[in-house]
Every structure is written in C-alpha cells, then in structure tokens.
Amino acid sequence: MNERNYIGQRLSALVGLDLSGVSYAADMLTLQFGPIREAPSRRGTIRHIGLWALHVQCHWRFEKDGRVLASYANFAISEDSIRETTQRMSEWIISSGPTRVESVAVDERADMALSLSRGFRLIVVPDCVEGDEDWRFFAPGTNGPHLVIEGGKIEPSSLS
C-alpha cells in the first residue's frame, strides 16, 4: 500500500468544504470542516461539530500568500497565546467570509498541506516521534474510522 496515496485519498473528502471551525484542546489545534451541527457530548453537553474534523498535535503553520500568520509555536507559549491564536485564526478564516479547501497534498513522511481559498494554506509536519500521535482525521459524531498519523506513519488500526 502506498501510504501517501491512502492519506491523500482519505483527506480528499475535504476538497470543496469550508473550514468552518477553529478551536483547541490543551495544545492541540482542532479544525472543523463542512456545515456545523449540534451533537451531544459524552458528558451530555452540546458541542458544535462539522462533517469532518482534523486534530493536530504536531508542528503546523497557517499561512496567507506565503506569509506565516500562526503556528504551533504560538501554542507553546501559554494558554492565553493559544486562545488568542485560535481566535485570530477564526476571525481570518470564518468571520471574514468562507474559506474553502481547494486541494490537499501529502508527501512520503505524511507532511500534509491544505490549500485554501483566499490565499490561505495549512501545513502540518509530523514530529515523527514513535508512539506519539501527530494528527487525526475523522467524521465526528459517527462511529466511522479515524485516520491517525503516529510517529509520521499511519497507525495500523486506521487501516481496519
């Protein structure tokens, strides 16, 4: 199996969808794609989820026209910096008009780039530390399979 093609094929579900939510959990960037809907959490609260979610726990950077606007380094500073960074990203991406996924590129190391409308781009670069989850792609609110990249490779349970 060609991992690069498999990852690209799975992520191709994002093409044509809007990046509709930006948030965080601890130092993990969480992104929602497609229409936002309400769904109950395990604790009984209401959460807002998209058709697809991308959770990033490795190096990433968010660019506009080749200029870095935000990165994982902003998440390494403090809780306030994380909150401010996700708020700014949300303003750039969501409040300023729709931002659609135009294309997905993946290389042999599971580096991933989402080219977005309006000149935006998200680049995700796995840390490649064995046993550490780099990023995860899934349909929230469903029992569907998760695509998990761990240590720069597809985590084997993602293939079942």
Rank of each mutant, 00 (worst) to 15 (best):
F75S: 11
A26S: 14
E155H: 14
R109L: 11
T30N: 09
W92F: 09
S160E: 09
M28S: 14
D80I: 01
S41C: 03
A26C: 04
S90E: 05
R37V: 15
H146C: 04
R37F: 04
R42Y: 00
G8T: 08
M1D: 03
A53N: 14
E133H: 12
C58D: 05
I123G: 07
E91I: 01
E3R: 10
I36L: 15
D18A: 11
S96P: 00
R67N: 08
I154F: 11
N2D: 14
K153C: 13
S158M: 12
I93E: 00
D80K: 14
L17A: 05
I46S: 11
S157P: 11
T142A: 06
M28D: 10
L54Q: 05
Q32W: 02
A53E: 12
G152M: 11
M1L: 12
A110F: 03
S23K: 08
T86I: 15
A105D: 00
S117Y: 05
R37G: 15
V22D: 04
Y72K: 15
I94V: 06
R61K: 15
C128D: 01
A53R: 14
A13K: 06
F138K: 13
R83S: 09
R100Y: 02
R136N: 07
F137Y: 13
K64Q: 06
S117R: 10
H59Y: 05
E108Q: 14
L147S: 11
T45D: 13
A39E: 05
R10P: 04
N74R: 12
F62L: 15
T86F: 00
F62T: 02
R47D: 08
G141I: 03
G119P: 14
E150P: 13
T45W: 06
S90P: 00
P156L: 13
A70P: 03
L54F: 00
E38W: 00
T99M: 01
D134H: 01
L114W: 01
D65N: 14
I123P: 02
L69T: 08
I36W: 06
E91M: 01
R109H: 10
R47I: 07
A76T: 07
I93A: 04
F33T: 10
E102G: 06
R136M: 14
Q87W: 07
I94Q: 07
K64H: 06
A76Y: 03
E84P: 11
L31R: 09
P35L: 12
I123D: 02
P35W: 06
L147E: 10
D134F: 09
G119F: 10
R118I: 04
W92N: 02
R67V: 15
S20D: 00
H146Y: 04
L159S: 03
